[in-house]
Amino acid sequence: MEDERSETTQTCGVTRRVVLASGAGAAAASILPLEQRAQAQQQFARAETGQTVQVSANVNGRPVILEIDSRASLLDLLRERRELTGTKKGCDHGQCGACTVHLDGRPVSSCLTLAAKIDGRQVTTIEGLAEGADLHPMQQAFIDNDALQCGYCTPGQIMSAVACVTGGHATSPDAIREFMSGNICRCGAYVGILAAVQQAAKVMEG
């Protein structure tokens, strides 16, 4: 694995040149002999880039230890370094809420959270909400109220909605609407989302 990484770095060391508009592109990896390339493909060690930082965290109840590019976001850690693609990228700038996860129990925008910052902390994503085959009451409420259409913003909506109830913010329709306004739904499922939070609140608050 180490070998492959250093290889990649080596192949990047091409000489600086200016490619004119009519010129051809530059291919670093194509220098690799075919057999080696096939090998690299099979091994598929994840090559990290930049300066790396070690992160040791708990994600959905499981320990996660990895060496990661210090520039990476928590979102790109989950989606591209772990198979946790339930968390979505909608804007990458904290402007839509699709990437909402819980960090130590609180919703955060994972796109604006440096991956390095989760060291020693607990992350819960949409994949970690259900207990076995049993849906979380909020997940069930989203189904019952059809509080979604395309489903792309849904994981983020549900993570916020759970916090809306557990944080004691589901006190009135307007309070729920306000709390849920950090999650944009382009399909416009807001009416269903409000109803889902109200339904789940009854169950969760028992």
């Binding site: 904290g94 809420g97 909402t100 960090l103 609180r106 919703p107 955060v108 925008s109 604006l112 959270t113 916020s160 916090a163 809306c164 913010h169 709390f179 306004s181 950090g182 999650n183």
Partner: peptide
């Protein structure tokens, strides 16, 4: 000032 997610950060 911000969404609840951003206020938590």
């Amino acid at each position: 000032a911000a969404s609840q997610q951003l206020r938590n950060m």
